[in-house]
Design a protein around this nucleic acid. Structure first.
Lengths: 214, 214
DNA sequence: GTCTATACCCTGATAGAC
DNA sequence: GTCTATCAGGGTATAGAC
């Protein structure tokens, strides 16, 4: 039988995601999370032991979700290496579109050095580069991609996506000021991703036998 | 005549850089900054009006310093486009090595959406991509690089550098746990930068006339 | 310019009724 | 499970002596 719909924990997690993404762990306020979730603060502490406990639970979920999606791509045997790389970027993009808080949380956790995380949450975080490495591995093995370190490829791929999306608000603020400019015309996320995809395919492709220009 | 050596403000700024990098704006403690700088907290408020004022002054300096270095590369006429790109990456790397706090602060400010910044500080931040765009411009103009949006190229270049370096602590924490792994062997910053340089040269180079493999 | 002491607010967390 | 009331600790900032 379907367990009684405990809507509170899910609503709290959703509110926490938004709050932690906007303010970071230290800047987040438990009061604000409770208000956003429309639950009483005592209720929040009833479901989650503490601010830290809530944070860890949230991050385990966030990292787990994205790792699972990347693992699915790695396991799809019908895709050739280049298609898998494109699929990884596209999947990241779709996931971010549906979960706007993801980039900021990832960036903040990197900057925080994993201070607020326990072993289990760190493991969930580590699953993300592991899944990405699994996506690239066949391509490197069969010579479609050049020899490269999986961690290097990982950061070369996801860092631009995360930072571009997360920087949306700053870029908006900069452009909205008089006398301050950003080079080039406004750049949409789709256009950015298209450009990045081109860059990554060229960056990772096995070196052409001869490629000379004078 | 040389103005009396006011060592305090510089020491405070240095301490603030470390504290804000490690904890972020919200997580930073004025007490701790004062203690790190070995000055009294009242002294800190004497030189800087507030925590926010200190933060803005620091960031203006941080962003200004890196923008200046990139502008110098852009202005060096003896370098060809590919060399300028390599020089930009190398300069970023050297600057980060000398100022370890830089990547975390940049990441955090992106995630924070520029909330704590005033117009002047935002302008200093905007000068960084502007300088980078100036580095690439001649290469795009003369056909050495492919057509690409300067902002796309900017994030494709600096995001990996910033995130790789800033993620040092998390990666260390992950690896230090039993039962949690990161793919590949340990990756040094130098090896990462070498790989990234290769990736970027290929990513930005004008499309070779023909590059086919079957 | 430098320091001590302190005001005052905010925040995470809990007690205890219902 | 849900809510009100409240506390203890720690945070920014300043007053005022030297």
């Amino acid at each position: 039988m379907p367990r009684p719909a405990r809507v509170s924990p899910e609503k709290i997690l959703a509110a926490a995601a938004a709050e932690f993404a906007e303010r970071g762990y230290a800047g987040a306020r438990v009061d604000r999370i409770a208000r956003r979730a429309r639950v009483n603060k005592a209720m929040l502490y009833y479901h989650f032991a503490s601010k830290q406990g809530l944070y860890r639970t949230l991050l385990r979920q966030v990292f787990g979700a994205i790792a699972t999606q990347l693992q699915a791509i790695a396991a799809t045997e019908s895709l050739d290496p280049a298609a898998k790389l494109d699929a990884a970027v596209a999947t990241l993009a779709v996931h971010i579109e549906a979960h706007r808080y993801f980039p900021s949380i990832m960036l903040r956790e990197v900057a925080d050095g994993g201070t607020h995380l326990d072993a289990e949450t760190l493991a969930a975080l580590a699953a993300v580069p592991a899944a990405f490495a699994a996506i690239l591995r066949p391509g490197i093995a069969n010579g479609a991609f050049r020899e490269m370190h999986p961690i290097a490829a990982y950061f070369t791929t996801i860092a631009p996506i995360l930072m571009f999306v997360a920087s949306g608000p700053v870029r908006t603020q900069i452009v909205s000021r008089k006398h301050v400019q950003l080079p080039g015309s406004p750049l949409t996320t789709d256009a950015f991703l298209a450009d990045l995809t081109t860059s990554l395919q060229r960056a990772f492709a096995a070196a052409p036998v001869r490629q000379k220009r004078s």
